[in-house]
Each structure stands twice: as C-alpha cells, then as structure tokens.
C-alpha cells in the first residue's frame, strides 16, 4: 500500500498569536477528489500553503506523497486563485504552459521535445490548443484559468491543488471547469478549495469543512446544521479577534 497523497496529523498553525488552524487531521488517498470548503479567513489558504511547503506547521505533521511538502513540490501542480503575473508580459500561452516543465536545472532557451509533446497534449485536453500562440494578456478570465490549469498539469503532477478555481469566471464557465476536473480526476488526485459549497458538492467525492478546525468530513450532501455551524462560528471568531 503506497503512502496517502496527503496526510495531516494534528496540525496547528498560527501567524504570531493568531491561531488559524487547530488540530487538523486529514488523509487524502490516491484518486480522490476532495473539496475543502469554509468561510473566508477559515484557514483554507493556509492549509494549501502548508501542503505546498510554503509554511511550516506550528505543531503536528504534514506529509505529501509520503515526503515533506517542500520535497514533494515537483509532484504537485498548483493553480492559484488569481494570476500573479502582469498581463502585458510579452509571452505566449504556449510559453506560459511550458513553464510548468521547468526545473532548477533548465538552462539555455529550448524546451525538450518531450516538454513540447506534453504541453501540446495538455493544451488540447483543456481546450486551449487553438490559442497557444496568443499573448497571455489577450485572454478572457476563463481562458486564463485554463492556461493556469494547463501550466500545473504539464508537470505531470500526482496531486493537483486548486485555490478557488472559479472565483473570477462566470457561472456558465464554472461548470465547464468542474466537468474538466472531474475528467482529469481519473488520472490525478485533486484538492480544490472553495467557499461555494452548494455548487461543488455535486462534483467531488468528499467535502472537508474547515473553519479553524475540520468540522466535518463528508461524502454526503451537507446538511443545514453543518453549514450553520461552519458559517455561524466565524462571525463570533472574527468579533473576538477585533475586541
């Protein structure tokens, strides 16, 4: 039996005095499609950053594919919520996607044939092959999101992590993206973070509700009481912090 894709064991995380995560334990097995949902400031992004090795837990243990997160980076594909680049950067879609094949050992100008092959295949898969030569700044929000997805996929990750993948695209496109993720899930384990519970639960295998700690873990539809607990709590929490 291989190691779980993600294993969090009684993880705490605090920014200085502000406790963001408390006693979070979570196991994600290969092939799962997990949604992490919860209110803003509920610790979702912090949890992602722990998985990506950008933060270290204050207490507890995080393992990704059996390794420390920082050592598993090349096996994890990450799709950010917003593009973090300048839209007027002179670069084509294909070159952005190819960046997902970079390693610290990539020198000189050219990507290998294998890199180009994988990029071509992934761009077809996410339906951006026809815009491959367009400058990145000329794309719509939905197209940009697909480019970010393709960039994460060309690294042939074993875990795909998406932060609010549909935050800046319209609703019709939202279901397109999730249909695509559902399909990709046949090959790769997926964790998606979202604040939109209702929509997402139709697509994923399991939902983890996070508000500082894991409140539920369910394969079933969320009931009203859980939602109440999850979204009711942060109001108190936030008020408390500001006192």
């Amino acid at each position: 039996m291989s190691a779980p894709v993600v294993e969090l064991d009684r993880v705490d995380f605090a920014y200085h005095d502000l406790r963001v995560l408390e006693n979070v334990s979570l196991r994600v097995e290969a092939g799962e499609f997990l949604a992490i949902v919860g209110p803003n400031a509920g610790g979702k992004t912090t949890l992602l950053r722990l998985l990506l090795g950008e933060l270290k837990p204050t207490r507890g243990r995080v393992r990704v594919l059996g390794r420390k997160p920082a050592e598993a980076r090349e096996l994890v594909g990450y799709v950010p919520q917003y593009p973090r680049f300048q839209r007027d950067f002179p670069i084509t879609v294909r070159q952005v996607v190819l960046m997902g094949r970079l390693t610290p050992r990539s020198l000189l100008f050219r990507y290998s044939r294998a890199d180009h092959r994988v990029a071509e295949r992934v761009m077809r898969r996410v339906e951006i092959a026809d815009i491959a030569e367009r400058p990145i700044g000329s794309l719509s929000g939905g197209q940009t999101q697909r480019v970010l997805l393709a960039r994460a996929l060309v690294g042939e990750p074993r875990l795909l992590v998406l932060d609010e993948p549909t935050a800046n695209i319209d609703q019709r496109r939202e279901s397109d993206i999730f249909d695509l993720l559902r399909e990709l899930n046949r090959e790769v384990t997926i964790i998606v973070v979202s604040h939109d519970i209702g929509f997402i639960s139709a697509y994923v295998d399991r939902v983890a509700c996070l508000n500082r700690t894991l409140l539920c873990h369910t394969t079933a539809e969320l009931d009203a009481e859980t939602i109440q607990r999850m979204y009711g709590a942060p109001v108190h929490h936030v008020e408390h912090v500001h006192e």
Binding site: L52, R73, P80, Q95, M99, L102, T103, P104, L107, Y111
Partner: peptide, 23 residues
C-alpha cells in the same frame, strides 16, 4: 543565454517559479 528560462520564469511569476523548485 544560459539562465534564460530561469530569468523569464522569475520575471513572469515568482510564486510559480518557487513552486517549481526554482531558486
């Protein structure tokens, strides 16, 4: 020439470059 792709990656998106393990 030697560091071209590294420079482009860091100039374009530092966060993603770090995620790819680039220095």
């Amino acid at each position: 020439a030697l560091g071209y792709r590294q420079f482009v990656a860091v100039a374009f998106d530092e966060h993603f470059a770090a995620q790819r393990g680039l220095r």
